[in-house]
Amino acid sequence: MQIALQQLVNGLTVGAFYALIALGYTMVYGIIRLINFAHGDIYAVGAFLGLSVYGLLAFFRVGDPVLATLVALVVSMGCTGLLGVLLYRVAYRPLLRARLSILISAIGGSLTLEYGLFLVYSPSFLVYPHLFGRAGLTAGDIQISWLQILIFASSIVLMAALYLMVHRTKIGMAMRALAINQDAARLMGVDVSRVIALTFFLGSVLAAFAGVLTGLYYSQISFLMGFLIGLKAFTAAVLGGIGNIPGAVLGGFLLGILESLAAGYFSSRWKDVVAFAILIVILVVRPRGLLGERVVERM
C-alpha cells in the first residue's frame, strides 16, 4: 500500500508531463489530422531554452528561485510557441494536401530540431539548476516534494485554462468549427491558417512548460530527451482518444500512473514493458481510445 501510494504520487507527476505534451499531439491531430512527429523535440527545445534563461539569470545574479523559474518558464514558453508556428509555416503548411509527404516533413522537422540542439548546445547531458531540493510534505513513508505539488497544480491550471479557451472564447469556437469542417469555417470568415498556427503555438507552449519542469524534476536534459517522451505522450493521446482534449489529459495521467506502479512493483527496467502491455490490452478492448477518437468536435 505504501509503495502504491508513493508510486501514485510519482505517477501523477510524470503523468502531468505526458498529459501536457499529449495535448499538443491531440490538438494538431484534431484540426488537421496530422501526427506532428516533431512535437517531442519542441518539448526538448523548451527545456534547453529554459536552461539558457536560468544561465543568463545566474550571470546577472538573480538568485530568487521562484522569480528565476517564472522568467525561465515565460521566456521559454513564448519562444517555443513561436518556434511551433514557424514549424507549421515552413514544414507543414505547404504540404497540407499531401498526406504522406507531410509525415516525411514531420520526421525531417524532428531530426532538424534534435540535431539543432546537438550543435547549438551539446551532444552530452546538461545539468539543470538544483533550485527546489527534495523538501516537501511527508505522511508516514510517503513523500511529496514541493516541486511535485507545483508541477501537478500548475499543469491542472494550464489544462483548465486551455479547456476554457476552447469552449468559452470566439477563437476556441473557430478551432472547434474548423475541426468539424474547414471549408465551412472559411465560409464564415475564419482565417483557417491563422487558427491552425495558433493551435501549434498553444501546443508548443504547453510542451515548453513541461520541458522546463522536467529539467527541474530530473535535473538533466539531453538533445534526444524528446524522442521517448514524445512517443509516450503520443501513446497517451491515442489511449485517451486522439483529437480529444480531455482524453489526452486522462491518457497522460493513466500512462504515468501505470508506469510508476510497474516501476514500484517490478523494476524500473520493466516499467515500459508492463505499462505498454496494459495499454495494448486497453486499446484492443477500446480501439478508439478511452474517450473516443477524432472528436475535437468534443474538445
Binding site: K170, M173, A174, R176, A177, I180, N181, A184, A185, M188, G189, V190, V295, E297, R298
Partner: peptide, 16 residues
C-alpha cells in the same frame, strides 16, 4: 453545419 456545436454557436460563427 457544425454538427457537434449548438444552434447558437453556429449562428455566432456567422458573425465571426
Amino acid at each position: 453545419i457544425f454538427t457537434l456545436m449548438t444552434v447558437d454557436e453556429n449562428l455566432r460563427l456567422g458573425a465571426y
